[in-house]
Every structure is written in structure tokens, then in C-alpha cells.
Amino acid sequence: MSQPEMQPGGPARGEGGEVPLGDLTGRPFPLGDWGEPAARLDELYRWVEADALRTVDWYLSDRVRKRRTARLLRLGTALGVVAGSALPLLDLTGTLVRAAPWGYVSLLLAAACLACDRYFGLTAGWMRDVATAQAVQRRLQALQYDWASESVREVLGPAEGTASEAAERCLGVLRRFSEDVSDLVRSETADWMTDFRPGPAPLRLHSAPPRAVTDAHPAPGVIQGRFPLPPASRPNMPRQRPPEPPR
């Protein structure tokens, strides 16, 4: 089985030059011989880079379909509003007879187009696709510079640590990049699921502060659920005036 051809700055393509489409499903981890660590690490880097480019291409391809449909619905909304506003005026001036009812129909079609755009999340969806593709592309550029830095460090030397530590450091760079891309895709999926969730977003309720543990046998002078009284305190009684002597 031949490996997909890589092109600088472009997505991974098959033998016929076509862009692989479909869902963002996982791919099997490439197995190889670690007898030559440098070649093995280069193979893993190309695999990670191809997967990131495939993710970017998937979001950009999905963006095209959503953007076209969203623009058509937006155009229908604008035309419906203009026609719904103009037809009653033409009927009022006598230019077009009985044109006012069609104006209400135009407004209804405009509202339907806007509702379809909001319900299917087309405008928000293609904007979200562009944002995710740009975020993955920006993270991929950071990976390319980090990998170049690690390669230059090993070639120019002196290398830091042993060869095993250098290999672990390179694997850590690839692993962090894969986790960052997965987090970006997961965040976009969560936003997409929120758009289709019925009703308003649930409110985040603050948790109540932990209740104090009450003692089954309180100490003397302690009232349950209240502050303890001083041990040697007497209740404050109102002072009475002394009786007046007889006159």
C-alpha cells in the first residue's frame, strides 16, 4: 500500500491527486522498526503533519458547502424583505393593483429563509469551520518550527542529554501537538452540539457552601445552629428605678 503524497502547504492527497473526504475518523498508528530512531521519528512527524493537513482540508471543504447555502438563504431573506416593503407601497400608489397580499407572502418567505439559516446553523457553521481550520493551521506552523529547532539542535550539537532523551523530547512535541488538534476539534464539536440543543443554554448554578458538621453532643452552653454563649455571662436585665420615698 503506497503512502499518500505530501505537498508543502497543502493537504495529503492520494495517488490520483484527489483530496480524501469523509469524516474525521482516526487512523491506525504507523508501526515501524526503531532500529533507526531518526528515520522513525521523521516518519511519525510526516504522519502527524498529514493528519493535521487532512483536518484543515476537511473543515475548509465543509465550509464551502455551508457558505454557499447560507449566502443563498441570506439573499432570499434580503429579496423577501425588499419585496415585502415595496409591493404594499406600489399597491398604495396604484402602480400595481392587488400587490399588497404578495408583499406579505414575500415577508413570510424572508422569515422562512432566515429561520432555515438559523435552524440548520449554516452561517455560524461555516464561520466556525474557518476559525477551526485557521487554529489548526496556526498550531501546525508552531509544530514545524519546533521540529526544525529540534532537528538543528541535534545536527549542530552538542546535543543535550543522551539519544534516548532526545527521542523522548521529539515524541513529546508530536504528542502535545496531536492533543492540541484533538482539543480544537472537540471544542468545535461541542459548539456544534450546543447549536442544536433545544431550549436555552442551562444556567450554571453555583454550588452551595459546604455545611458545617454538627456534633450530636454539643458542649455545654452551645445552642444547636447558633453561636455559643460566653461561659460566664449573665442575661442583661433592664435596670429598675428605686422606689421613691413617701412625701
Rank of each mutant, 00 (worst) to 15 (best):
A100N: 03
F120R: 06
S151M: 04
A163G: 13
A159N: 03
L184K: 03
L203T: 03
A208L: 15
A163T: 03
Q144G: 11
R98D: 10
T194P: 06
L41F: 13
S207K: 14
R74N: 04
V97Q: 08
P230Y: 03
E150D: 09
A99D: 00
D57V: 14
R63H: 08
L89D: 00
P4G: 04
G22F: 14
A115W: 13
W147E: 01
P238A: 15
D129K: 01
R63K: 12
L143T: 00
R74G: 11
T123Y: 13
S149G: 09
D129E: 02
V213H: 09
L53E: 08
T132E: 02
R197D: 09
L140G: 05
S182L: 13
W58R: 09
A190E: 01
R46N: 07
D146A: 15
P218W: 00
R63A: 14
L92S: 08
V152W: 09
E150Y: 03
K66V: 05
E188D: 08
D195P: 09
G9R: 02
R226Q: 10
P235L: 15
G16D: 01
Y119M: 07
T194N: 13
L21N: 08
R153M: 14
A86T: 01
P246I: 05
Y59E: 00
T189C: 15
A110D: 00
S207M: 10
E5G: 05
I223A: 15
P20E: 00
R153C: 13
A148C: 06
R46F: 11
G221S: 04
P20Y: 04
A115S: 11
E36T: 01
T93P: 11
V173W: 02
V82F: 15
S187I: 08
A163I: 04
A100S: 14
H217Y: 08
A70F: 12
W126N: 05
T214E: 10
